[in-house]
Design a protein around this nucleic acid. Structure first.
Lengths: 196, 196
DNA sequence: ACAAAAACATACTAATCGGTATGTTTTGTG
DNA sequence: CACAAAACATACCGATTAGTATGTTTTTGT
């Protein structure tokens, strides 16, 4: 039972890389078979069809990876301005799972799959709601500890920051250059300062 | 020569609607032919191939429409906070060319086409640079007239706002509901106030 | 060691894709 | 009205697509 799981994971990982790079619809099963060196029989043994594999990528690969990248940094509780800024800075500038030219994988999937398959929207919504929840809780805590102004609306602020993050990822993808991230980050810092 | 142009425009409009709704890769030429009632011969008389049609959608349809939606409102010069807020509010809540469940057409194209065809990136970049330029100029003017703080960096601020706009469009698409727009808009107003 | 199930391999299929070849019809112009 | 070019129509094509049918091999529990 160990080798089979490795095969499945190999498919998911390689398939994700292809999808992240080229998009879901333009990545064919045969593309995936070619890069994984897995045969069609093996593929369809592990996944009922292509969409089920796509959902598995989201739930079994993206979710855990992005949870650790997005949510865990917010557990080490410090100065909110700095913590949130560092989180976004790390995601944009240092995280080497995410590539500027490919954008945000969750945003990519959202754009491409939302009109195509409801199951994708569900799985993606779970990820984004997780992010929102954890950052909202973070700001709530910061308010109680007097680290940010009590007039701050935690959920609204979170949504505003998350939106900016998704948007600048799109800009980066369009311009294929991390340099657009820098002015964004500076202005993010400005904004975060106003929460104090 | 008039009827032919009408045919071309009809193709572009119907094709855009399909692409905006379903995505570019999942919209087939045959889909477009079926909804336009145009034959394949006519289609390929007007467009060398599918991608050329896609570029034409961006340059001949999206660009003029979005220019009037994004840029013209910034010509009527008033209070920046109010003007920019009203612009975004109108785009999100009232503009009936843009649909919440379909997201931002420029962002959609960016996500889907950037890895596929460079010409798309070029055409899309022209649109987004146009937006950035006009809003940056707007903030510069506002600074000179003392309507916002001189410490404001016009370009950075513009990029920050534009990113937020693209991001919240993605949220709206994912949740298929305009209600996420409201907290975003409130926080946008807060942010704009800090520029004074 | 052996049977049964799990895991994988190969060959195929029907449908759909973008695109082309080869027409016919319509339109503008002298 | 003629006739050439523009505009459109029809029939087709090779390639690719997701998926299946039918195998063989490997692993596992007993």
């Amino acid at each position: 039972m160990k080798k089979a799981e490795a095969t499945r994971l190999n498919i998911l990982q390689k398939a994700f890389e292809l999808v992240y790079e080229k998009g879901y619809q333009t990545t064919s099963i045969d593309d995936i078979l070619a890069t994984t060196q897995v045969t069609k029989g093996a593929f369809y043994y592990h996944f009922k069809n292509k969409d089920e594999m796509g959902i598995a990528i989201i739930n079994e690969l993206l979710k855990p990876i992005l949870t650790s990248s997005f949510i865990e940094p917010l557990q080490n509780y410090k100065n909110p301005t700095e913590t949130v800024y560092n989180l976004i800075h790390h995601l944009l500038m240092e995280n080497d799972f995410l590539k500027v030219q490919h954008g945000c994988p969750v945003a990519n999937f959202t754009q491409e799959m939302t009109p195509w398959n409801e199951d994708f929207s569900k799985a993606l919504n779970e990820i984004s709601q997780q992010w929102i929840k954890s950052m909202t809780l973070y700001f709530e805590k910061a308010k109680k500890n007097g680290l940010i102004n009590t007039s701050v609306n935690a959920k609204r602020t979170t949504l505003f920051i998350m939106s900016g993050y998704w948007g600048i990822r799109n800009f980066g993808k369009l311009e294929n250059n991390k340099s657009v991230y820098l002015p964004y980050l500076k202005e993010l810092k400005n904004y975060l300062e106003t929460l104090k």
